[in-house]
């Protein structure tokens, strides 16, 4: 089991990202949204970006996912280690909404990424039956991991919010990319469901480079290895702290203090 896993990790080389002096401005806007962004996103760790609504944290994430190519001007360097041509080919994206296609079954939703890009390439007319079978097996295994293998044939609307986000998590894992970008994926869930999903995501995304955007300091403290604050106008990123203990963390006194500190910082933003 552990040998198998090490093998898997080896194949899926993790990826570090560093951003130097990043500046981002929407084409239809007068002022830049983000300025002087310096961030080190280490490989195989969780980096949380905290900020209030409208601070540009989603814009930053969408830029990393390659979704703003026609809408923003970006200057500054964005390096990957090991180097790749395009960051957007290395990322899987998980949004606040589960974005499950209502016309596809749970299993087909997990398999969605296999219809596009590299993994969809097969014979022009003849589909590679063995490959499709292997992909299906893999998707079922992932559904097993998120505890929804019995719901594989259901339609998404038959599931609860938490179950749907678990399917989305399985779909993200199916993409098998070294970097996972998460945009407040747990924020629409109730407290207990959110807690469980954080634990599950933490366990399943352990080897990945995760960039998690959130406005909830508690979530950042539970999951992050480093926490960046995004604030100001235009927003700049500030490394708040690096946490070394293993995740997911329990709620404790140190966490509460850190949370208080974060709140104070974010609140201070208001007076500027």
């Amino acid at each position: 089991m552990s040998a198998n896993r090490a093998n898997c990790e080896h194949r899926l080389a993790s990826l570090a990202i560093s951003i130097d002096n990043g500046l981002m401005q929407y084409l239809d806007s007068q002022a830049p949204t983000l300025q002087g962004i310096n961030m080190q996103i280490p490989a195989g760790q969780w980096t949380c970006i905290l900020g209030r609504s409208g601070c540009g944290k989603t814009s930053l994430l969408r830029h990393l996912a390659g979704l703003l190519d026609q809408k923003v001007v970006w200057s500054g360097s964005l390096r990957m280690d090991p180097a790749h041509a395009e960051l957007k080919d290395q990322v899987a994206y998980m949004a606040q909404q589960d974005l499950l296609m209502p016309w596809l079954s749970v299993l087909d939703n997990v398999l969605l990424s296999t219809r596009f890009g590299e993994s969809a390439k097969s014979g022009f007319f003849v589909k590679n039956v063995r490959k499709i079978h292997a992909q299906k097996e893999q998707a079922l295994a992932l559904l097993e991991k998120v505890g929804l293998v019995d719901n594989a044939s259901h339609l998404p609307q038959q599931l609860s919010g938490g179950m749907r986000q678990r399917v989305a998590l399985a779909r993200t894992l199916m993409q098998n990319k070294p970097v996972v970008l998460m945009d407040e994926p747990f924020s629409a869930l109730d407290a207990v469901t959110r807690y469980r999903l954080q634990n599950l995501a933490c366990a399943l995304l352990r080897d990945k480079t995760v960039v998690l955007i959130t406005h909830d300091p508690q979530e950042a403290i539970r999951l992050a290895h480093q926490i960046y604050l995004l604030r100001g106008d235009p927003s700049t990123a500030e490394l708040l702290t690096s946490l070394v203990s293993s995740t997911p963390r329990e709620f404790d006194a140190a966490g509460a203090q850190l949370q208080q500190r974060i709140m104070a910082r974010l609140e201070y933003d208001d007076d500027e």
């Binding site: 390659g66 016309w103 596009f116 890009g117």
Partner: peptide, 25 residues
């Protein structure tokens, strides 16, 4: 737009987006 963004990050081409997402949606 969330659907389209999602499949864009999966590397879907314009035709694939039309066939697999926009048409069923």
């Amino acid at each position: 737009s969330g659907y389209l963004d999602l499949v864009k990050t999966m590397g879907a081409s314009k035709w694939q987006r039309l066939r697999h997402i926009q048409f069923p949606a």
